[in-house]
């Protein structure tokens, strides 16, 4: 007999697919409030035992990071259901637009927003401030996102400007200055490769990050300079 979660997937609408997971829009308790379902499907190229345990631990890891962020007051989607055995994580549906599409250069040609639509509710500078603040709150909680890009941030459209961080699939727990600096560096690179003239935008992000980090900022700032010189990966020499 098919499992509850496979029935759920079968009734859901596929939104996107990556190498690691498929993402669906689905309904579990009501037809009016959707949830987002992330299904880490079976990988045929892995031994079944290894596949099962990796899938389970990744679903668990992502859910734990989200919960930790919620408790720390970071804007992230709430968790709605977990079926670790089947590799399924159901989270709150966030209605809004991803930041990549709100900034110049990020939208695909046909969906390019007119100037009037761009960055609703707030100006670019304010939006960058929201990003910096959310990242700082997350880092202060000891969570490293691991894949900070403008695609993984949603400006929620329902209420007064709320920036929501999504996709904690590569996140991990760490208090190290190095990890925070690399997290920021990854975002800086993402900005540079997606959006033209990104320097002033990214410096607004850092400005807000600095304010929120307080006394922790100095060491991260210093390390970020180091990381910029050598790149994301540390030298293995020595």
């Amino acid at each position: 007999m098919p499992s509850a979660s496979s029935n759920l997937i079968a009734s859901a609408e596929l939104i996107s697919q990556g190498a690691e997971a498929k993402v669906y829009k689905a309904h579990i308790h009501s037809d009016t409030v959707p949830i987002l379902v992330k299904h880490r499907f079976r990988k045929g190229y892995r031994h079944p035992t290894l596949d099962a345990s990796l899938t389970r631990s990744r679903v668990a890891g992502e859910a734990r990071a989200l919960l930790k962020c919620l408790r720390a007051g970071v804007n992230v989607p709430g968790i709605r259901m977990v079926d670790a055995t089947e590799g399924i994580l159901g989270i709150e549906w966030i209605e809004g637009m991803c930041v990549r599409k709100l900034l110049p250069g990020g939208a695909e040609a046909e969906t390019e927003l007119s100037d009037a639509d761009a960055v609703p509710f707030t100006g670019v500078d304010a939006l960058m401030g929201l990003i910096g603040t959310e990242i700082a709150k997350m880092h202060l909680a000891g969570i490293i996102h691991g894949d900070l890009t403008t695609s993984n941030m949603i400006l929620e459209s329902s209420q007064s400007p709320r920036l929501v961080l999504i996709d904690f699939g590569l996140s991990y727990h760490s208090g190290l200055v190095e990890d925070k600096a690399v997290d920021l560096y990854v975002l800086e690179r993402a900005f540079a490769s997606t959006h033209p003239d990104s320097e002033p935008m990214f410096s607004s992000v850092l400005k807000a990050y600095e304010v929120r980090m307080g006394k922790h900022w100095a060491s991260v700032s210093k390390r970020l300079d180091d990381v910029r010189l050598r790149g994301r990966k540390r030298s293995m020499v020595g």
């Binding site: 989200l66 919620l70 408790r71 007051g73 259901m81």
Partner: peptide
């Protein structure tokens, strides 16, 4: 932190508690 920041705003505090509790139950 989430709850401490909402201090004094009981409507917001309830929203946050509800979300944390639901997410804890789900996971």
């Amino acid at each position: 932190t989430a709850i401490l920041e909402a201090k004094g705003d009981s409507a917001r505090e309830k929203v946050l508690i509800n979300e944390i509790v639901i997410s804890s139950v789900a996971s």
